[in-house]
Design a binder for these strands. Sequence first.
DNA 1: AATTTTTATCTAAACGTTTAGATTATGGCT
DNA 2: AGCCATAATCTAAACGTTTAGATAAAAATT
Lengths: 346, 346
Amino acid sequence: MSKISIKDIALKANVSIATVSYVLNGTRNVRPETRRRVEAAIEEMNYKPNDIAKSLKRQHTNTIGVIAEDITVFNAPDIIDGINDFGDRHDLHILLVNLRLDKRIGRNFNDVTAYRKYAANAVSELLSKQVDGIIYIGVHTRDLTGLIDTEGKPIVYTYGYTKDDVSIQYNDEQASYEAMAYLISQGHSRIAIISGLMDSIPSRLRLNGYYRAVTEFQLPFDPLLIKMGDWERESGFRLAAELLAMPEPPTAILSMNDVMAVGVLQAAAAQGFKVPEDVSVMGFDNREFSDYLTPRITTMNLPLHEMGYQAIETLYQIINGKTSDTRLPPQCQLIERDSVAAPRTK
Amino acid sequence: MSKISIKDIALKANVSIATVSYVLNGTRNVRPETRRRVEAAIEEMNYKPNDIAKSLKRQHTNTIGVIAEDITVFNAPDIIDGINDFGDRHDLHILLVNLRLDKRIGRNFNDVTAYRKYAANAVSELLSKQVDGIIYIGVHTRDLTGLIDTEGKPIVYTYGYTKDDVSIQYNDEQASYEAMAYLISQGHSRIAIISGLMDSIPSRLRLNGYYRAVTEFQLPFDPLLIKMGDWERESGFRLAAELLAMPEPPTAILSMNDVMAVGVLQAAAAQGFKVPEDVSVMGFDNREFSDYLTPRITTMNLPLHEMGYQAIETLYQIINGKTSDTRLPPQCQLIERDSVAAPRTK
DNA sequence: AATTTTTATCTAAACGTTTAGATTATGGCT
DNA sequence: AGCCATAATCTAAACGTTTAGATAAAAATT
């Protein structure tokens, strides 16, 4: 059992513990001969430093707390991976707390009191462990102002933001606009959109992108082409069915996530519409399965890894008092596959 | 900034720091009146305990190190979720290290020296942080004997094992056998299997299950029905194409994972076989998308959450010197959907 | 009222480091 | 050979707790 401390090796190398510390950290000069002796002792006794003790003295832990609302939701792992990517390069460790919100209070976060309790616990756990900063990973972007008190410890949000803290976001409005622009470039002008839950900020933002595209490209605007889904497959199916049953159905359907797009595909098949020949469909998220469906679905990739990377990078800068050189925000990217084509010319 | 320590509150409450510690931990009796005083001080000064200091004195951290070979691989998040589930109930914190193996050395772990380096770094990081134990989450089950030295710190493996350490596994052989039994119960006797990479232990185990089923149910054995894939969609497609082009094609195809099953579905469609009418197909893993495909694919659920839960529970018992009451290992579960039916009677 | 027992509180050391500041050793100059 | 500057090393305090053991206070027993 590794009970050997700096003290033991000091004894063995016949120097003071301070000297050992100096060779360990290179904080002061030490004579080559002495250095050799203590290094030999370290080697021989298989000394392993104790970061807990270090952290107590220095006033930081090199550890950052990550709060994930639910780690099993598709966006979390890649964001965390981005965090690790930066963390590895800067010797930052990750203390993870998983709120498990999906299991505990479900997807719509109305139960603010329960939420507050879980969040407060998470933060105080992290604070007790003296993390140098906190990263928050939500499942849907929303305003978290006033919900989390970190007692002054720096925090940066992804998928979520606050009036007072920094947050890393991609531009939902722009992404949606770009999806529309792509569809329009393919020749579509009658384009339907199926949104997520309307209390969700991304839903509203993406709808704005839709409106902007319709306006800028001067498409004929038809409010009947706008449908409100709930992010789930079934709603995509139901809403697409309605859309395709219209006297003059849209030639393209933009779904605000890939799982509703699955429903859209199924509705199209059920009503004898071929995709993309009879109707184009486009998703959002670039979920792994979007490549497995038939047809492979064209979608919008989310810069998840980059968000995590930028989140911790920003946090790191805040912690170290560096002037955060403003990077451009993470960008979505259109993934062109097989579910979009030019509309039939009638 | 929360610089108030036990010392400050001792001062304010006019007691010694020991007394404060006693009320904090209930380790000794303290007069109600005194307790009230210190509690008031704690409240008033908003005192937050410092776990780092605690950990230095007590010889444990209440922190478990989790090493994930790659957190973006599908099995990791649910396992971690299981770990958190137990961790929450026992006040155990999670220090996560993500080896990011997929990005660094790819899926086949031949490069043992690079692997060793990453693993050793991870362990020593965790050891420095004085974790009470370690959980290892691999991406594929394999023998890790001799690769990781935890210097005596307890470790439990999932998706991976060692001659010397405890590991939590589901029974691959059995799961595969059960899949076969199900297919046979539906009337199939000419059943093909598409394996994963053959240097993978699950591949071999599942093949054993296949053999056992063939033997026990006395199916006619045809070696041509056994195909070696590589876990990727494309191999499922190619191999299923071969299978379906046989003079007497199988009536059912068991794929060792859901992603190859996608390829199987596509090959069937390409060759005009309807699923499940002309050929049944079954997957493995119960990936989210298996429910989104057409037809929805019947598959084998992996007890990921339970594995994580049992892993940390076992570790907890080892750490606390409790006799590990032997639980039965996590069980796979067949998820019946639409891709399997009785074979055509010719 | 004096003594003993019990209960509450305090003192001080310890956990493993880092780091000012003090002390000592080394080597160059005269 | 003696002095000085410089370089190397040491001493001791500090970080925020816990916890034996000592002491003081209160309660119970005579």
